[in-house]
Design a protein around this nucleic acid. Structure first.
Lengths: 208, 208
DNA sequence: GTCTATATAACGATAGAC
DNA sequence: GTCTATCGTTATATAGAC
């Protein structure tokens, strides 16, 4: 189960998360894995190959997780709720890998970079389609699909940078807060483009 | 005006943004500045000192900008609108510095790290106070202040990672979209915690 | 204030024994 | 599959001339 190849990978995830890819040396990864640095190269052809291996697995798992969660759901609102909730869950539960996947793309060769960005784009497209459909069906306001899809995804992803696993709130509680915040943002009950156009008084009509 | 010290700084901002702090060498910064690498050390005592100098100036300007924008405003809703709008503006207009300020903190010595985090905390506290006041005055829903302040700030900050200065939308247009999205998220017209509890039908009451 | 030259250390990666 | 030994390169930073 826990082969040396997997051990190296998990040590690398810890270090890349904590210190960053460029600031982490092969020596440190070897030390953490309990072997000599030359032995790393039996399992991975280069440091970059190790990084790519981490990012590829993370992106593949992320997309598979989303597709599984969406399967069987019919209405758009449920779909986008589940998509947002699952995105937050995945990013908080696999915090370190996801943090790396969103901050260390510059460490990849150009071919590997393209491969990862392509996977990310595929994932983003699913979200954009959901928002677009929700808008067309009148569930969401007339929002800018592209900007808001980026906003929503980066918002949820950013959670991985400050999330504290032993903290005050559980993963699902945080996911609920995000889901609520985002759905209300998408529905845009208030026009809100000019100050005070949608004040506390007007809102009382909508509340509970 | 454009002293060599400033030139070095602006070249460093370009390179740290494009390649990352650790992946950028003093040689490259010197080459971009048109001098020899040893000459860098006349202006900055170390590479880390150069990074700190960039981050400190950015954080100081950010907080000063916020305080200036808030001065003279009375009602909380206007204040939070202006705070969000300004945060987005600042991050998009000084995209590179802000990107560095949010991704390269690990490159700092521990003393410098503490100094920057302290500035960031002070800035965050202003936002948290605004959300808290808005909640107490009944303008916003009964939201989790801490989580939502992080969410809002990271959301707006993330814009600096995908923003394209020559793209489809202007800085102010994007800031408007964010402002609207966030204000609606904070007001939470819909309870939204369980799927379909706040469907399209219920929303029709709130719309325009 | 910028230069040439260099000290010193660490890096990623390879060769070849076992 | 892991080891020791090492190659070749690059890094940050300093010394001292101009």
């Amino acid at each position: 189960m826990s082969s040396m190849k997997d051990t190296i990978k998990s040590i690398a995830i810890e270090l890349f998360f904590k210190k960053g890819y460029f600031a982490t040396s092969i020596s440190e990864i070897a030390k953490g894995s309990g072997i000599q640095k030359a032995s790393i190269y039996y399992h991975y052809r280069s440091k970059e190959d190790l990084l790519f291996s981490i990012l590829k697995a993370t992106m593949d798992d992320l997309t598979r997780y989303l597709k599984n969660n969406l399967a069987g759901l019919d209405d758009i609102e449920s779909k986008i709720r589940v998509a947002v909730h699952g995105h937050v869950r995945f990013h908080l539960e696999r915090q370190k890998e996801n943090f790396i996947a969103n901050s260390e793309l510059r460490g990849l060769t150009s071919e590997h970079y393209r491969a990862i960005v392509e996977k990310r784009d595929e994932y983003e497209r699913i979200f954009q389609d959901l928002i677009r459909q929700g808008r067309e069906e009148g569930i969401f306001a007339d929002v800018d699909v592209k900007i808001l899809s980026y906003a929503i995804l980066t918002l949820c992803t950013a959670g991985a940078s400050w999330f504290n696993p032993g903290g005050r709130l559980t993963v699902d509680e945080i996911a609920d807060i995000y889901e609520k915040f985002i759905l209300n943002g998408l529905k845009q009950a208030c026009e809100a483009s000019a100050p005070s156009r949608c004040g506390a008084k007007g809102m009382a009509i909508c509340k509970a």
